[in-house]
Structures are given as structure tokens and as C-alpha cells.
Design a protein around this nucleic acid. Structure first.
Lengths: 155, 155
DNA sequence: GAAGCAACTGCGAGCTGGTTGCAACAACCG
DNA sequence: CGGTTGTTGCAACCAGCTCGCAGTTGCTTC
């Protein structure tokens, strides 16, 4: 394990009529590297660490191609940049709107949520591409305290 | 009913040390106007219909102030612009990532989802600010058909 | 109701995150 | 090896906001 998926993904890319270039190799390598959620910027610098001449736009285009063949998924978690990850490693995200922390939802819980929604509404939630914003416990505590203080001041 | 909340919101604004200006009146009026989910652009043109000289940046700033006092909430639904609405009228959204259609989640279902998440993970999903992406039934059908066609071509 | 303070506004420049057009380049096929 | 065509780097561009600043105006005080 570890690197075999690089070749598998490159094969998929070739199979869909694409060519294998060093830029593509580098992007795929950056994607399979285990890590938290990567922004495009993050991926770009990772790629440029090994291939300094790869242009940002090229990385975006490669990500787009990978997304087209279903290998990669990107999600907009809140306000800033999008994050990219392999769709096979995908999962639901909870994003704290205060501190930006990302919590992953265990698959069974995600599944039961998705099923509930599908049953009640004509809407199929993609487990592999789904994020919910809210507040993590720490920020929740911080916030209700702040609100209390605020109410105090106004009284 | 109808317009009383305009005055109530303006009072809140004044109460928090703000001033009432025609621009602010117009933005609040646009917000209470019943409608689907409004983008900033949408709100700006609505405001400019009655107050043509209000600058876009002013609308953004007013929305920011309203958000600070908790009257307004904005959500990034997918890839494009954010949508704004009164926090009191808030609810969960499902966003179709293909066609952009927005489906509202009935409060009881939303509550049971939020409870499930809170019980299992230390994370409190804000019902009033929560969106899930996926595909509406129509786009789901469209998509699996396209995937079929694609697989066909490759075989 | 005039004066004054400070919040608010319009304007335009600037920023982030991403997209696009184009000419040069280089995989892959034969 | 030579041709075809997908891919790349570059730079200009775009959407969606954000910010700095000078001028304006709401609210308060006298």
C-alpha cells in the first residue's frame, strides 16, 4: 500500500484518453499523500516542491480532469478556498464556522442521514461530497459565553 | 404583519449603536421582502431599484453589520455567490450541485439530523445555518444516464 | 434649530481564488 | 522518427468581495 494508487489513477487517466505528464504525476502524488483536507493552494505548493515549474493554472486543470473521471472531489467548506480529495477516501465533513476545524462524520451516521433525506425529500445527498457547517463544542461554549457578556453590557 | 419587522430590525440596529440611513432602510426592506434565497447581487439590484445611488460596497457593509447583531445569516451554497437571509426565517438547505436548485428541509427532519450529530460527535450543527450539497432527483437521473453513456463509449 | 461628533456612504482600487486564450511543447501512435 | 493532438506556462482576465479615504449625514447636545 501507499503508492500503488498513483499508478492506478494514472492508468484511469490514460484510459480516458489522457496523457501522463510529470505535472500530472506530481498532482496525483500530492493527492494520495495522506493528509488533512487540502486546498488548491496547498496542493500547488506541494506539487511545486517536486516540480517547481508547474503553473497554478495547470494544477487547477489537472484537478478538473481528475474530477471529470470521478477520481477527485472538491468541496467548498465555508468561506474560503475549496478543498480537494480523492473520492474513494471521501466522507462527510462538519465544518466549524468559527475556528474552521473539520470533523469527519462516521460513514454509518452519514448513511443514515442521507437515507433519511432521500426518503423524505426527492433529493439524493452525495455522501462523498457533502459538508455541514455549525460549531464545534469549544467554539459553541465560547460563543454562548460571548453572547451572555453582550446581553449583560446592553442591560 | 408584513412590514413591522423592518422597524424592529432598524430598532435593533439603532440599539446597537448604529444609525438609520436610507441605504439601511432599503437593505432591510429588501431582506424582509418574501423571496427565495437571495444573493448579494440580487439584494443589490433590489436595493438600487428604490435607491439607485447605493453602492454595492455599502450593501455588503450593511449586511455585515446586520450579521454582527445576529439579524442576518449568510451561507455559501456551493460554488458561486453566498445567499443572505434573516436568521429568524432560517432553515436547512439542500443544494443541487448541478442545477443549483435549493430544497428546504422540514424542521423536524433537520432537528433529528442535528440531534443525531450532536449525540455522536461533539459538534453542534446550527439548524439556522446549514446546507448540504447533493443532487436533486432530476439531476441524479440525468447524471447516471450520462455515466452510462460514457461507460458505453469506453467499452 | 445650529453645531459638532462620529458613523456611514460612494468611489475606486485592491484582493483572493479561480478561469481562459494562446502559442509552444511533448506524449503517444504508427 | 515524424505527425497528431492533448497538455502546459504564461499572462490577462473574471467574479465576488473587501478596504481606504474623503465627503456626507444621522443623531445628540446645547
Amino acid at each position: 500500500m501507499g503508492q500503488p494508487s498513483v499508478d492506478r489513477i494514472l492508468d484511469q487517466l490514460r484510459g480516458s484518453g489522457g496523457r501522463i505528464t510529470s505535472a500530472r504525476r506530481a498532482v496525483v502524488a500530492a493527492l494520495v499523500e495522506p493528509s488533512d483536507h487540502r486546498t488548491a493552494e496547498n496542493l500547488i505548493s506541494l506539487v511545486q516542491a517536486t516540480c517547481p515549474d508547474v503553473a497554478p493554472s495547470t494544477v487547477y486543470r489537472i484537478l478538473e480532469s481528475l474530477e471529470e473521471i470521478g477520481v477527485v472531489v472538491h468541496v467548498h467548506l465555508g468561506h474560503g478556498a475549496a478543498v480537494y480529495h480523492l473520492s474513494e477516501a471521501s466522507h462527510a465533513h462538519l465544518v466549524c464556522e468559527d475556528c474552521g476545524r473539520v470533523v469527519e462524520v462516521p460513514p454509518d451516521l452519514a448513511k443514515s442521514i442521507a437515507d433519511g433525506i432521500r426518503d423524505r425529500l426527492d433529493f439524493s445527498v452525495a455522501l462523498r461530497h457533502f459538508s455541514i457547517t455549525g460549531r464545534c463544542r469549544a467554539c459553541e461554549a465560547k460563543w454562548s459565553k460571548a453572547r451572555l457578556r453582550h446581553a449583560d453590557k446592553r442591560a
